[in-house]
Design a protein around this nucleic acid. Structure first.
Lengths: 191, 191
DNA sequence: ACAGCCATGTAACTCGTTACATGATTAC
DNA sequence: GTAATCATGTAACGAGTTACATGGCTGT
């Protein structure tokens, strides 16, 4: 894997996951990403995790260790001292980017004049179900964080609570939306 | 520009902007995107607008007309009948994707154990300013929509109101966050 | 005259994805 | 034995970006 310097935000995100202290395989790192990152920052595909790990290793930001496990060799990565330093430097000096949002439901509502109101209502209902799933998963994450009262999870708790607020607000907006769509159906629904 | 079939969501978004009836230049289309799309769906770069217009034209979904304007020729695009049909087909049949979010502030808070609490507070403050800007701009959009009571802006109003709720909720979350960060500073702030 | 906006693109590149390929281990 | 999960990658592609290049028009 070619070294890419400087790293992307996704690269730093993975490096950051390793900063919690565990020595992880690429596979496990992907699972961690799916259980935390995914709620606020698109989790990378499996193949990208391996690609980033290759880059991080080439840059000396992570250390790899191969362990024999029966007939196969499993490679685990841990954060290096340089990696920790580079991560701190990035957090301290890189300007904050605004959030990137692609809200497909909003796009479809924006083009609502081309759709059947029933279709729009169904899309809102779908989004509600998706949103409820996120909330369920996030509550599970949150309670697991409470079971383990270690200090290093302090900021993870903060972000989990933020996420609960975020998806809760999203959910309420959808209810408002559903109501207004229903009210609009009373008026002449021309297409 | 090579034809790409099927189009991406961004392509349909631009096609959708043309469905409001105006005949626009690439430049104007970009301005419309910056004034509407941008609040809920990342607005494409100028160069991509031209690329998409080329693809849309190649697929017969928009019609181009060149008009002489002094020494230069200005090309305007409008939605074709096929384009309108294709847009409807897409809206009716394509499954809704979940929203894509890359919330850089949340990522930095998640890695808060590697930062100085003052730095985190500053980042939250920055995000507050950005959020207030969005709200100001969106309120301006919303009041312009009210000045023009044409029916075709009905769904645009709906989405603008949704956006005001969305960014309003984001803003309130940031206040909560700021408060919790301050409270944490009372406790031992080790790094 | 000069800045700033209007207008149209091309080229190079990057990020990230899906699809493919392979094989070991574990649970039923 | 077979399905699911663990584990590690490669290859091809796609969507979108920044940087570059060009030039007319407009206001001061």
């Amino acid at each position: 894997v070619a070294a890419r310097q400087p790293l992307t935000a996704t690269g730093y995100a993975l490096l950051g996951l390793l900063s919690f202290g565990s020595e992880l395989t690429g596979y496990e790192l992907k699972q961690w990403a799916d259980g935390s990152l995914r709620f606020f920052y698109n989790a990378p595909a499996m193949s990208q995790v391996y690609a980033e790990l290759g880059r991080l290793q080439a840059a000396g930001l992570v250390l790899a260790r191969d362990r024999e496990d029966g007939a196969r060799t499993v490679r685990r990565y841990r954060l290096s001292a340089r990696g920790r330093g580079e991560l701190r430097r990035w957090l301290d000096t890189t300007p904050l980017e605004p959030p990137l949002l692609k809200h497909h439901l909003a796009l479809r509502l924006f083009l609502g004049h081309l759709s059947d109101p029933d279709r729009l209502a169904e899309l809102v209902a779908q989004q509600c179900r998706w949103c409820d799933e996120q909330l369920t998963d996030l509550r599970a994450v949150r309670s697991r964080l409470d079971d383990d009262p270690e200090e290093r999870w302090g900021y993870a708790r903060l972000v989990a609570d933020w996420g609960l607020e975020y998806y809760g607000a999203e959910r309420r907006s959808l209810d408002t939306l559903g109501g207004r769509l229903l009210a609009a159906r009373a008026d002449p629904p021309r297409r």
